[in-house]
Nucleic acid binder design. Structure first.
Ligand SMILES: [Mn+2]
Ligand SMILES: [Mn+2]
Ligand SMILES: [Zn+2]
Ligand SMILES: [Zn+2]
Lengths: 133, 133
DNA sequence: ATTGATATTGATAATAGTTATCATTCTTTG
DNA sequence: CAAAGAATGATAACTATTATCAATATCAAT
């Protein structure tokens, strides 16, 4: 299993204390600001190790990977194309239909990722305000 | 609307004649081998322009974007983690549940992407053969 | 505790996919 | 035809991530 070095523990603690979806750079910066400065390569390796161990989870966005706490369990995401905000949801009907789809094709599913893109509530309020009525 | 230059027409034709999920590099190489050599930047720009116009569609994988015919309409994908093979499916129950999830949160959905990862049938056959029984 | 094997770190080079720049070459429009 | 507007292609630049490698740290016996 993973060796929980001070560096990895720092990464894990920060992620577990928060509710965000962190990218490697943000994480390194935040740790640095809190006196826990670690090399960017160590952050990438630490994140990979922690994810392998199931201690954190991630989502792959178009440009970068983002990590979050694993104790929330599996869920999927709504991504706002205006502000980048990420909301979460889990729909059991969707989850079970996916199993079915895979089974129907003799495809041994190991995982999945569902991203819903669009405009979040707060962003659509913002644009409504600035309309010419 | 898009200007259908000879370069873009070549890209579009190749995609429309095939059933694959092309990345920019593959496309450029294949065109080059068929006497339609175009700069890689032109390929990237052409793909973006054609997609904007709705003439092709794409999926964003972890490492790169892959393009395919648009006339098949929307569908989602099963990606084999062994051989990279990409299968397609469309499940109306999943599609409608997504609408519901978005609506419930006042999230204005503009699109989505569902990737199911796992081992395809042919790859799981392969590994069964090489087992010690 | 000492030693030797193994794993981790951090600085930095390298890689991969993609976008930006810019001079040149089409197209379109008046 | 001439000016304005796009598109092209070579290549530089950029971003996220991985590879390299020497220096440390940790582990597992002796
Ligand atoms: Mn999440
Ligand atoms: Mn497809
Ligand atoms: Zn938003
Ligand atoms: Zn396969």
């Amino acid at each position: 299993m993973v060796r929980l070095t001070v560096q990895r523990q720092a990464i894990l603690d920060l992620i577990n204390r928060s509710n965000q979806h962190w990218d490697a750079e943000e994480l390194a910066r935040c740790l640095g600001e809190n006196g826990e400065q670690l090399g960017i390569a160590t952050v990438y390796r630490g994140l990979a190790a922690l994810e392998n161990a199931g201690l954190i989870q991630s989502i792959q966005l178009a440009d970068k990977k983002r990590y979050e706490r694993a104790d929330k369990g599996h869920h999927d995401h709504l991504v706002c194309i205006k502000c980048g905000d990420i909301e979460e949801f889990c729909d059991n009907k969707i989850e079970s239909r996916q199993q079915q789809v895979a089974q129907d094709r003799s495809f041994q599913m190991t995982g999945h990722q569902l991203l819903i893109f669009g405009v979040c509530q707060s962003c659509s309020n913002d644009s409504r305000e600035s309309e010419t009525p």
